[in-house]
Amino acid sequence: MSTATAQIRVLIAKPGLDGHDRGAKVVARALRDGGCEVIYTGIRQTPEMIAEAALQEDVDVVGLSILSGAHLELFPRVVDELKKRGVDDVLLFCGGIIPEEDTKALEGLGFKAIFRPGTNTQDIVKFVYENVKK
């Protein structure tokens, strides 16, 4: 019985202009049921807003969801904005419609996992618990 509780805090964010957030919500829900505190910021977030939310909320994990195809455009900017604010120790993952050929580029940016359609949500929860720096 411990009274001190350190919980994993996750930011789920959707950069850019696509308005389809079903996937982001499903992932947020799965992580919630997995015992995480999930901050969901809604659709149409700029890279600055996502980085600022990550800083203010002191999250351990940032998950980006994107279906618009602009990931190679927007994700590097999110990573830049995080770095600019000194947020350099969060676990990054992403999901959505992301072609296989972009995997290398995203890994190079620091994304530790890419979850595509058909992913079992439990795999995402497992990934977060196994990779988070706590």
Binding site: R32, V38, T41, E48, E52
Partner: peptide, 20 residues
């Protein structure tokens, strides 16, 4: 959640004007 201790924190959605 009293069972999993998880939570969805969604209040930022309504406070976008002051987000930055």
């Amino acid at each position: 959640s009293p069972f999993t201790r998880g939570a969805i924190l969604g209040d930022r959605i309504r406070m976008q004007d002051v987000a930055l």
